[in-house]
Write a protein that binds this DNA or RNA. Structure first.
Lengths: 240, 240
DNA sequence: CGCGGGTTTGATCCCAGTCAAGTCCCGTGG
DNA sequence: CCACGGGACTTGACTGGGATCAAACCCGCG
């Protein structure tokens, strides 16, 4: 019994793809469990994988490599996330999945996906829903990379990460969440240099501290103010 | 009979979500046709739309608005694209869809989506597939915004646009494709200022020209060289 | 003819990338 | 036990790509 089946999973803030009920249903389709040590690779970009996964424990990153050797972290992998579904469907993984901390994942066979679509339309619908949520998030990331400066990007990322992790019950009493990544990972995710990311984190220190693999948010309001999350309505449109 | 039903639709370069056969099947589920004039809005971000669409003719953009008034163009809308599926599923549109040229779209009811999932698993599978492809593309966009400089971004965008449009048969004899957008749109898509986008386009003029709403590519190879599309394999991994 | 939206070009400034040290910490081996 | 080395983090100095400001220019249109 994994923590993710016992902790109160909710579709919180569009961040929790699977409910506990859904997860347990999916368990019938599981084809094994995968355990990764930090730095181990789940799949490489370009791989035509026969599997996709849901993350149960630990954290990782999905990265794309460019010809010049640069890395872009496309997304972080947290407990509850579905990983590699895109790769299974769209003919080859578009990114490499790497564990940042020890991970446990549940493995499913792409082959049986079609079976799932036939036998359980509701679950199939849920899978499409998950893809849609992912798409929503990637859109937000694009807006962040395209329009916000370094301070806003980092504030946005820290808030997103904190909310996502506390939504799956990983927040401790003291209000801190585990975040076993390197600053290099955050830098590559936000399209900033390592050095500048570091300096930005230093400036935000009064509002949020990230040390020893744990993240504290002391002033979420101020962070949100800085991050300037997108407005739901276009400026010229009357507010209701 | 719309051009998109007659022209040879293929799943080309991951860019053509619907085959002609699939499209005609979906036609049974259509609930009407939408025509938009340039500048008209299909849906606003935040809207809880009861519909989603496939684009048949014309082009448009999907934009996110930020609190400071900035715009981010998340994606372009071309004939064959599915629009608003994400909005239908993930509870509210994450972006605003606006027509750049006169558009014709086919409208579907979100309500009947579930029906589709029950009656035709294959089509349901195709829908998830479409979402996965979209996710793939957004990931590439993230890598572009995060890691590439202005010249690379513009070269990448022009190539993508050209390939996408010629894949749906919109290329003329002379090799030009229609691109009725403003430079402002490309700038907002690539996270660059309008001024700098313009200067970059000027520098790329020998390789690609974009005038009067039409785009010519004269040296695709050189453009690809500049764009440095992502490598399928991570650098440290043996090639096979 | 004048107006407004889109495009072009030049001049200036600043955010963030790059280079280069230096610190802290932990694991390894003499 | 301490010396050494390597990896992550920190900090300062310098530079440059792209943002910003400003002013034309080029249409189509009322």
């Amino acid at each position: 019994m994994h923590p993710c089946q016992t902790c109160p999973l909710r579709r919180h803030d569009l961040f929790m793809p699977f409910s506990a009920e859904e997860l347990s249903f999916m368990m019938k389709f599981r084809s094994g469990e995968v355990r990764l040590a930090p730095g181990e690779v789940l799949f490489h970009e370009g791989d035509e994988s026969a599997y996709f996964y849901t993350a149960l424990e630990g954290q990782g990153v999905r990265v794309k490599h460019l010809l010049n050797g640069e890395r872009q972290v496309v997304n972080l992998i947290f407990p509850g996330d579905v990983v590699g579904l895109q790769a299974s469907l769209a003919g080859g993984a578009s990114s490499t999945a790497i564990a940042s901390s020890p991970m446990v994942l549940c493995r499913f066979e792409k082959r049986r996906l079609h079976e799932l679509y036939c036998s359980s339309p509701d679950r199939a619908y849920a899978l499409t829903w998950i893809a849609a949520v992912e798409e929503h998030f990637l859109g937000e990331t694009i807006a962040t990379l395209g329009q916000r400066d370094a301070t806003q990007r980092v504030a946005w990322a820290l808030l997103k990460i904190y909310n996502r992790l506390s939504a799956v019950g990983l927040a401790q009493e003291a209000g801190d969440v585990p975040l076993p990544l390197r600053q290099r990972d955050l830098a590559d995710a936000m399209g900033l240099s390592l050095v500048h990311t570091n300096k930005t984190l230093a400036r935000l220190r009064p509002l949020a501290r990230w040390e020893n693999g744990r993240l504290w948010i002391s002033d979420a309001e101020a962070l949100a103010e800085i991050a300037m999350t997108d407005c739901a309505l276009p400026p010229d449109r009357p507010l209701l």
